[in-house]
Design a protein around this nucleic acid. Structure first.
Length: 335
DNA sequence: ACGTAAGGATTATAACGGGA
DNA sequence: TCCCGTTATAATCCTTACGT
């Protein structure tokens, strides 16, 4: 059970200094924006773009370091003493986010029918038998996945319990919903974050198990300032386990939720050929309808979307097996 | 210019239904 | 079983507006 405390308007929402909140929030909010080179023609300006990317990357790292130091100074020596024993959230490739590969083969984030979000109580998620994942909370869909993936991008370099500030409009742009900055959009974003904060995940392997929240703490102020904190367990998982890197540039252009699910799944496997039973993919991705609707409609259109974005090639569906060849990330070829 | 808000119109789609 | 249309619903789009 998660309690969300909302202060009455007019009262102070947080112990920290509102001035610092504003200053840091604006700066970090800007970092998540990435329009400058989006949609550029890949045929020219490649080397100058590489330099621009590197330059921007260094600037970002410096800014993050500055704000981290500022925040650590604010909270005192408590954090700086605890920090050496804790894992820092790893840095990811430019414009990429990540999910632990094992998660990409489960229905942790699935493909729900509109209006049919169930609340799970210690439900074992569909997935491969070598990884047992249970979950309590509202079912999470691919919108929640987009939100989670961007929080992962924002959390780069952060320590567990360190506040990561963002601005909602930048956040929405970063997950491809920037064309609608209406109150409905903000409401959806907020509800998604509450779902991610509420859901508790239990992962169990041969060596034992652990539980955690996808977002540890969510804070928001009366005038729209937001911050999140990552669970120490999440940071540890991202620092220690195999990660599937998700190209967010490609992801923003993917239309169907199933294509996004498959992007995760594909990113969790090696470059090259792969084959999987259609039925397994259908169950893992959360489809509860007829197999023929999935095999003949949803799956082919999602695969052709991925083919158009250069994620896979030579896909085929036959004999209840779907096959494709994964193409390396454009970025990893270029840089 | 920008972030936020509100409401109406339009679109997308997972599941379902019917005919051959 | 195969193909295609329908349905219900939320997501998305579009316009207008306000305050800083």
């Amino acid at each position: 059970m998660t309690l969300f405390l909302v202060p009455k308007s007019g009262s102070r929402g947080d112990r920290g200094s509102p001035k610092r909140w504003l200053a840091i929030g604006w700066r970090i909010g800007g970092l998540s924006m990435h329009e400058p080179w989006q949609g550029e023609d890949a045929a020219h300006g490649t080397s100058s773009r590489v330099h621009a990317v590197l330059h921007r990357r260094l600037q970002e790292a410096a800014e993050r370091e500055n704000s981290k130091n500022a925040m650590q100074a604010e909270v005192g020596r408590q954090t700086s003493e605890a920090a050496p024993s804790q894992y820092q959230f790893p840095f990811l490739p430019v414009m990429a986010s990540a999910m632990p590969t094992q998660w990409t083969r489960t229905s942790l984030f699935s493909n729900l029918k509109k209006g049919e979000r169930r609340t799970l109580k210690n439900q074992v998620l569909e997935g491969r038998s070598d990884c047992l994942v249970r979950m309590s909370g509202e079912e999470l869909d691919m919108y929640d996945n987009d939100v989670f993936l961007h929080t992962i991008q924002l959390a780069q370099g952060a320590f567990p319990g360190e506040r990561v500030y963002f601005e909602r409009s930048s956040f929405l742009r970063a997950i491809g919903r920037g064309s609608d900055l209406s109150s409905e959009s903000y409401r959806r974003l907020h509800e998604s974050m509450e779902r991610l904060t509420s859901a508790t995940i239990f992962v169990q392997g041969q060596m034992g198990g652990e539980s955690f929240r996808l977002i540890d703490k969510l804070r928001w102020g009366v005038s729209g300032q937001y911050s999140i904190e990552m669970d120490a367990e999440i940071v540890s998982i991202f620092a220690n386990e195999y990660l599937a890197f998700i190209d967010m540039d490609v992801r923003m252009r993917l239309k169907s939720p199933l294509a996004k699910y498959l992007q995760n799944y594909i990113a969790g496997h090696k470059v090259g050929g792969h084959g999987i039973g259609c039925d397994k993919l259908r169950v893992w991705s959360g489809s509860r309808g007829r197999a023929r609707d999935f095999n003949c409609r949803a799956l082919p259109s999602a695969l052709s979307e991925l083919e158009n974005e250069g994620v896979i090639r030579d896909w085929s569906i036959g004999g209840d097996i779907v096959r494709w060849t994964r193409i390396p990330h454009v970025r990893s070829r270029r840089l």
